[in-house]
């Protein structure tokens, strides 16, 4: 029993990271109907920005002398990474997707795959392909509940992810920016007629989604101990599966999908075989797309002729 609870706790913390990344996919898909493959690399760059920011702030010396990293500096690391990723996300949109706004829908998809390859290989050149240990911006504290181990890191991951998601919900549903985003996602031309600048709104959507991915990247590094330039590929794909599972374009759906995928992965790995962990996640994607493409929380949209 304690093993089951342990797997569930680990699954939920992994799942909340997936959820943070899934939000970026879902938001971009909402406004542009584009699977932004480069999002997985924005996540990777976010993790590395956090890595370099923490290193710059002198975490190595603190770590070696056994001191913990001050909390306010950890917050600085988080903000720096979110800013870097937001800028990167907006740049990608400006350079690679905006020129293709009126192209057939598959053209930006291929461009997105190309951008993802480009960023990943640039990452290997700049960050080197060697896996790095993620700096311990949070000193680990373990709590033992009758054989079930919960660390403050897992709790922080869960808390930060939830806080960011609630913040996003407010932003989308309670602010003018959010209203503009929803308008653009419903109908870009109609939104333009209502005086909304779609380019700016799309830019903001990319910035917010990318910043969340960066937060996901830092939490991922803390949780998974190592990072490398190819870390985004599989994680990003799984986060995308989470977005589809919850209902693409739907923000609570992405959160739900992320948690479900995290749980299913951990339970499959723990009780069936880790060898089939990835295969089953892809199977979930296929089954959901074929049986209920609008996802768990999505709304069926009639196709217009």
């Amino acid at each position: 029993m304690s093993q089951f609870i342990q797997q569930v706790i680990n699954g939920l913390s992994l799942g909340s990271i997936y959820a943070l990344i899934a939000l970026g996919y879902t938001m971009v898909y909402g406004v542009l109907k584009l699977i932004n493959f480069a999002h997985s690399e924005v996540f990777m760059v976010g993790a590395y920005s956090g890595f370099y920011a923490a290193t710059f702030l002198g975490i190595d010396a603190l770590d070696q002398s056994g001191q913990s990293f001050p909390l306010y500096l950890a917050l600085v690391v988080l903000i720096v990474a979110m800013l870097v990723s937001a800028t990167l996300g907006m740049t990608i949109e400006r350079l690679a997707y905006r020129p293709l706004r009126n192209a057939p829908r598959l053209t930006p998809l291929i461009t997105a795959i190309g951008m993802s390859l480009l960023l990943q290989n640039l990452g290997m050149l700049i960050f080197t392909p060697n896996p790095r240990r993620y700096p311990p911006i949070l000193r680990e504290v373990r709590f033992d509940f009758g054989g079930v181990i919960v660390t403050n890191i897992k709790l922080t991951i869960f808390a930060v992810a939830m806080a960011l998601m609630v913040g996003l919900w407010f932003l989308v549903n309670r602010t003018w920016t959010g209203r503009a985003m929803r308008a653009v996602s419903m109908n870009l031309d109609a939104a333009r007629l209502m005086g909304i600048d779609p380019d700016r709104t799309i830019g903001k959507t990319f910035a917010i989604g990318s910043a969340l991915a960066a937060a996901g990247g830092i939490l991922f590094g803390l949780d998974q101990i190592t990072i490398n330039p190819t870390m985004g590929t599989l994680t990003g794909l799984k986060a995308f599966v989470a977005a589809v599972l919850g209902g693409i374009g739907n923000i609570p759906g992405a959160a739900l999908g992320g948690l479900l995928i995290g749980l299913s992965e951990q339970l499959v790995a723990g009780y069936i075989s880790p060898d089939y962990r990835d295969a089953i996640t892809f199977l979930i994607l296929i089954v959901i797309l074929i049986l209920r493409p609008e996802g768990i929380l999505g709304v069926v949209r009639q196709e217009k002729v």
């Binding site: 598959l106 794909l237 060898d275």
Partner: peptide, 22 residues
């Protein structure tokens, strides 16, 4: 899969490709 269109189809073929390899 071919009931799906566009990017959904693309992503399903990607999923199948990966499953076959795994």
């Amino acid at each position: 899969s071919l009931r799906l269109k566009g990017d959904y189809l693309a992503i399903v073929t990607l999923g199948f490709g990966e499953i076959i390899r795994l």
